[in-house]
Amino acid sequence: MIEEPKTGMNIIVKTVTRLTTGLILLFGIYIVFHGHILSEGGFAGGVVIALSFIHLMLAYGREIVLKKMSEKVSELLGNIGAVIFIIIAVLGLFTGGYLFFDFFGKGKPFNLFSAGLMPLYNIAISLIVGAGLFTVFVTLVFFRSEKK
């Protein structure tokens, strides 16, 4: 007889979550780093990364996830992403004379560095989106429990 856990869902869900969360996180990171050859890798990847944490939170309950990734940390990450994005954009202004100028060179197709600064922008965007979505989820879902 397995005891009913105190927080979160039952053991089947927890086990499946334990096995899949890492894979989901990895998939999100893959989309982010692959995004410069698709359109908008940053947004989709960021959403998937945030989903992996939300998945964990649904299965195990709030406290366990907030220990790993608290709201303050995620807000900070989002802000860092935004600041990185703007810094890269303004660096273009100083090096090439244009905002968003690609001072990295466009690179060759099918090589490792093939789209200039796009991967860096994608990483910054994924930080903003992932952290933002996670924070929004936490604040919306646990809105009333915070009040009490």
Binding site: L76, N79, I80, A82, V83, I86, A89, L93, L99
Partner: peptide, 18 residues
């Protein structure tokens, strides 16, 4: 010219940061 957009958005994130 782009500074009219960059300054306010940069300051907005800086304020929410610090």
């Amino acid at each position: 010219l782009p500074l009219v957009v960059v300054i306010p958005i940069g300051i907005a994130f800086l304020i929410s940061f610090l």
